[in-house]
Every structure is written in C-alpha cells, then in structure tokens.
Amino acid sequence: MGNTKKMLFRAIEFVLRIIFIFCTLFPFYWMLVTSLKNRLEIHAKVPTFWPENITFENYINAFAQTRFDMFIKNSLIVTVISSLIVLVVSVLGGYALARYRFRGKNVILIIFLASQMIPMITAIIPMFILYSKLGLIDRLASLIASYTVSNIPFCLITMSSFFKRIPVSLEEAALIDGCSSFQSVVRIVLPTMLPGIMAVFVFAFTGAWNELFYSIMMISNEGRRTIPAGLMNFVQKYDIDWGQMTAAGFITLIPVTVMFFMVEKYIVAGLTQGAVKE
C-alpha cells in the first residue's frame, strides 16, 4: 500500500519535471527552428517542427538588412565598460561594507536597498533632461552611466556578502607573513573571491545587455543603438520578418547563455545570499 503510493508520487514528480523542462525549452527551440526555415515554411498552414530545408539566409539577412553588426558592437561597448566599472566599485564598496565598522553604515545600506526600489523608468525623464544638458544624448556614454548606476546597489551588496564569507583570519595570516593590507586583499582575498566576482560581473552584464527603455529613449541615431533598441523597430512593424528576428534573437542569446552556464552555481549563490538575506 505504502509502496504504490510512493510509486505514484514518484511518477507525478517525474511527469512534472518533464513538463517544466518542456515549457522552459520550447520557446528557445521554437525560436531556433523558426530561424532556420525559409519564409514560405515559416508561414506554412501546417507548421513543421523541424525545418524541411535548413537555411541560414535569415542569419545572413539579419546582418545584411539591419545594422545588426553595429548593434552588437554598441551593446558590447556599453555592456563591457559598465560591467567593469560596476565590478571595481562593488569590490571596493563591498569590501568596506563587509570588513569595516563605521558610523552611518546602516544608513548607507538603507540607501542602497531603497535605491533598488526606485523604478528606473521614473528616472527616465530627469535623466533625459540631464543628459541633454550634458550633451550626452545619442551617445553611448549616457547608457554606460545609466546601466552602471542601476546595477551598482545590488552588485555591491551581493559582493559584500561574498566578502563576508571569507574568514578575516585569512587576511591576518597574510599580514603576519609580511603582506601589506593592500597586498593581502589583492593576492589572497580576491583570488578566493573569484566565483563571487564572476557572478557579480554576470549580473551587471546581463542587466546592461538586456536593457531596453533607456536605450530607446537616449539614442535616436540608428548606428548607435544597442541590440534590443535596434531590433525594436523591426518588431513593431506590422509585417514582422520572423525568420530574421528569431535569427537575430538567437545570436543575442549566445553570450548571456554561455556566461550563465559557466557561473550558474555562483549566480544562484549570489541571488540567495545577496540583497535578500541582508
């Protein structure tokens, strides 16, 4: 009796697992399949679940008919620069937050947490006016600044929780061995922090890589758009070229997916130990 119940329970679990993985993968699969079909097959009355004739014309067209190469370049510039700034600032600030006691520490923590609640979108109007006064409209610098700011609070708090997990004794040992405190951080603490550093970098990277509204608002020059904003024009048309868009989408997905799989473990650690448990 107990055994059949257990078997039944296991069967349900198994089915649920299949359903979850199917629902997760189907959109990706459908995007890939669509991107490999020709126009006729995409709009066929009876959709095919695998392309009859695999074609790469959509990928070629994505580059030929949009300025996709420029979008990629702009996205890379904006994302890499802002993530690196976020990383440096978060390492410095996270270290201070984890190791030192000082007056106003709680106030600072509250400022960071509260700033996470401010909707980016309500700041879009004042930022637009500010950037136009500074002559930054239509320049990638405006996006770099915006993404850096919006990613710092979360990344900094996450980084400090990674620092807290490194025992202070490790640094003290280095100090006794004759390292300066700067050396002990750079040579001893940072290498052990590598997973945390990678996780924070990936947070900042995906945040900036995926952002849409600031990019639409601040950049109007086609050649300076980032990927989401650049492709937006093609998605809002009445007659969307689905082959081309899914091809472009698939390419966009590659860098974040590769990074995600590389550091998934640490991302999970960062998410769960970071801002929320503080």
Binding site: T206, N210, G249, L253
Partner: peptide, 14 residues
Amino acid sequence: WAVSGFLIGLIFKW
C-alpha cells in the same frame, strides 16, 4: 532568468 524581456516578448509574440 538570463534572457532579456525583449527576447521573451519577441518569442511569445511569435
């Protein structure tokens, strides 16, 4: 989690 809202919108729109 790592996918952009833009891309999700695109796929689901399709």
